[in-house]
């Protein structure tokens, strides 16, 4: 009959002094004023970060905003193979390919837009890329903006990152 019955530790009974509350309240007031004075004296120890002015340094493997890599001559490294947009589960990458003027390169992206509102930051595009042309190592999130249009990042913005 006692299977599964577990004895739970009950809180011990309060002693006479504790059940008067008064001394305990004074102790509690001491704790809080201690925190207050310590934080007023050493404001630099408060863990709160003053966000827009001070930014947290993200760990090196943080996966954030995308950037497109460049060749040594400054042209985009991307060859418009559509691997990333095919891999993208959120369908947020739009590529329009064009013929490259460079004879060694077959295609280049005329348009390369990432809709940051659709992106889920899964990193599949980075894994899919055969040329290491897209990376997510900018170390920051998508910044907020006022319109949806401004959050569709074009190739120029992505190359600058």
């Amino acid at each position: 009959m006692t299977i599964g019955v577990r004895k739970v530790a009950r809180p011990r009974k309060m002693s006479g002094g504790e059940s008067l509350y008064l001394l305990e309240i004074v102790k509690g007031l001491g704790v809080t004023i201690g925190h207050l004075l310590r934080n007023m004296r050493h404001q630099e120890n408060i863990a709160t970060m003053e966000y827009p002015e001070v930014r947290r340094v993200m760990p090196p493997r943080f996966r954030g905003l995308h950037r497109l890599m460049k060749r040594p001559d400054g042209t985009p490294r991307c060859v418009a193979c559509f691997c990333c947009s095919t891999a993208c589960p959120a369908v947020c990458i739009t590529i329009v390919a064009g013929e490259s003027p460079d004879p060694k390169v077959e295609k280049y992206p005329v348009r390369f837009d990432i809709d940051m509102l659709r992106c889920i930051f899964c990193g599949h595009c980075v894994e899919a890329c055969p040329c290491d042309a897209i990376r997510m190592d900018t170390g920051w999130y998508t910044p907020p903006d006022f319109t949806r249009e401004k959050l569709i990042f074009t190739i120029d913005m992505l190359l600058e990152k």
Binding site: L36, N39, M40
Partner: peptide, 13 residues
């Protein structure tokens, strides 16, 4: 402000 400092926050600034 007092609540913030008591709770180790910065409070309105």
């Amino acid at each position: 402000k007092g609540a913030a400092y008591i709770q180790d926050r910065r409070g309105p600034n």
